[in-house]
């Protein structure tokens, strides 16, 4: 019997949904440009239709394959999924999420203030519990970053627009230069 796995269905739903949404939103700029017949929406819509087409073909091919496998009565070899602990999954979510938080803070609290805290937090999150390393590694990386980019190359990194972080960044910059 031809069957699709749950992840295959999810994937197909994702692409079709994505294409549908993109198509709907393309009405926001669906107007001819006086010097160009296809306007702003022509190209994106062709891409959207091709996405839908490729997604359908992907489903068809998966169906054919599973049917062929079913006919040969081959036992579906399911990957032996290692037991996934909730705690691990939470930690992975944090590993993925913390950098996003860091990036979001750059414009607010600035690069100079936020970076060392981020490094230490990230190390801890990745299982480092030895205090000398938790302090030493951030200091080392931070020093390298400041030396290379601020001292040697004068690149202006975000200072943050919120006080007192803005003042701290400027104080540090004057200090280094």
């Amino acid at each position: 019997m031809a069957r699709l796995s749950r992840s295959q269905i999810l994937e197909a739903a994702f692409w079709i949904g994505f294409a549908a949404l993109a198509y709907v939103f393309s009405y926001n700029f669906d107007r001819e440009i006086e010097i160009y017949r296809f306007g702003a929406s022509g190209w994106p819509r062709v891409v959207i239709l091709l996405i839908a087409l490729a997604a359908v073909c992907q489903i068809l091919q998966s169906l054919r394959e599973s049917r062929r496998n079913a006919r040969r009565a081959v036992v579906q070899i399911t990957e032996t999924v290692p037991e996934r602990k909730l705690e691990d999954s939470l930690r992975i979510t944090a590993v993925l999420g913390l950098p996003v938080l860091y990036a979001a803070l750059l414009d607010i609290s600035g690069f100079y203030f936020t970076t060392p805290i981020f490094i230490a937090a990230y190390l801890w999150l990745n299982g480092e519990r030895r205090l000398p390393w938790l302090i030493g590694v951030p200091v080392f990386i931070y020093a390298v970053l400041l030396t290379v980019f601020t001292k040697l190359l004068y690149i202006g990194l975000p200072t943050g627009y919120v006080r007192p972080f803005y003042d701290f960044s400027n104080w540090l910059l004057v200090l280094i230069k």
Binding site: A22, F25, N28, F29, R31, I33, G39, A40, W43, I51
Partner: peptide, 20 residues
């Protein structure tokens, strides 16, 4: 195609209309 779609974000290259 996903890459092509992401590339359409911003201003269209002919009229500068806002897209996505």
């Amino acid at each position: 195609l996903l890459g092509l779609m992401v590339a359409t974000v911003g201003m269209d290259p002919v009229g500068g209309l806002r897209r996505y």
